[in-house]
Design a protein around this nucleic acid. Sequence first.
DNA 1: ATGACGTGTCCGACACGA
Length: 259
Amino acid sequence: MKITTWNVNSLTARLQHVLDWTAANPVDVLCLQELKMTDDKFPLDVLRDAGYGHCAVFGQKTYNGVAIMSRAPVRDVVKNITGFADEHSRVIAATVDSPAGELRVVNGYFVNGQAPGTDKFAYKMSWLSGLRAYLEAEMRQHGRLVLLGDFNIAPEDRDSFDPEGLRETIHHTSEEREHFRQIVGLGLCDSFRLFEQPEKSFSWWDYRMLGYPKNRGLRIDHILVSDAVRPHVKSCGIDRVPRKWDKPSDHAPVTVELG
DNA sequence: ATGACGTGTCCGACACGA
């Protein structure tokens, strides 16, 4: 069973890429971020024809918006962070069946945070605290859990093209990395790091300054699995192919395989 | 270089991203 996270930077602009990519990579569950559309605009019919007959959608006009697209039924859909009031559509959770048994999937578009010291950074910090409390409760209820999405955090120096030059800037601050560690500390692990990976593996590249051709990127899209799921993880990888297509998303899809 | 590039909103300029 394969589960993918992909920040598509507008599903309107990227629908054909999603269709082309899933045709070549028929993953079981595709978790999207940055839909940038309201629920009524979500292309349910087209995605059903593409094999994803079970979609849980939490959209928003212009910004944010997340969805879980699944080939098999999803149940117990929860939108946003329980216990944390949020104006934005950033989190959607659902339960699916997996080879390991019932699996809770939590798909998040984490706050960007702009820069340390700003109101947006403060929002990011409180959002992360709210998420952690919510996850703690979710994990008590669901031993088998996957937390994936656009974390907007480069957890370690090796997850950045310029860790020295960007030290303590957004995505690289000690506070963000401490939040990441605390989330992992709930009993999760970064599935990407369970395997040998190429150096300078990134999941996002700036549209500007030839970011992708120069591999000036960050690894900020992650798939964390709970300890009960960890023995079932067969592989985890980033697919750079769609980043080379015409008019790409600035993020690449990341996929985990469970056996 | 408070830039660059891309998307959406509402129609030229701005908000936002990472």
